[in-house]
Design a protein around this nucleic acid. Structure first.
Lengths: 97, 97
DNA sequence: TTAAAGTACTTTGTATTTCAAAGTAAATAG
DNA sequence: CTATTTACTTTGAAATACAAAGTACTTTAA
């Protein structure tokens, strides 16, 4: 049952989602445009990765209008922050065996 | 062109391949059974991930018989070791921003 | 001695995931 | 106005992940 990769969270086991989380844990929030630019990904690709994290309740999404333009903000949840911490620890443990 | 996830190597961006590499960089070699047990994966799954790393020339494969039983040993290549080092540094950089 | 179970993989096919292109809708620029 | 840009969402094909089944033996044990 227990293996050396057991505590690596599948939800974070992709560079784009790892990037999203590492941005959100230090920034409190980021909007679609900011994530897109920092990560250098296409729109559709980013949307599907944020959706996956949202589904797990690791981030939440707040839609509003800034002036008359739509704006989507992403926040990490408590659950997400905790899970990410465990994930990072698991990676570090794996790499420093 | 350059983003915060740019130096993360797609070939290592999966927990199983990350696990395989982290085993191989410290052990010089591991056989199929050892990898399977350490990682807790199914046979077919392990085979496809080792094949992916082999294709990139990050590991090489040596088939022989131990007694009368087939045995497959995996070694990390120089190229693999270098690429993995860069990958690990990229992850660490990302996580400690 | 032969049947059953185990070992060490490989092959196959489906399910899931990833991704970019195209689509939508409103804003701003010319 | 019309054209382009911004800010996303939807769609569907392609790639990937995965387990189950298959192959080719070897070992156990009745």
């Amino acid at each position: 049952m227990s293996s050396i990769i057991n505590n690596i969270n599948k939800a974070f086991d992709h560079r784009i989602r790892l990037g999203i989380m590492s941005i959100l844990v230090v920034n409190e929030y980021a909007d679609f445009k900011m994530l897109k630019e920092l990560l250098g990904v296409t729109d559709g690709n980013l949307a599907s990765h944020t959706k996956a994290l949202e589904k797990e309740e690791y981030i939440n999404v707040e839609k509003s209008f800034i002036g008359r333009k739509p704006n989507t903000k992403y926040y990490v949840t408590k659950k997400g922050r905790d899970a990410f911490k465990k994930h990072v620890e698991a990676i570090e443990k794996l790499l420093n065996r």
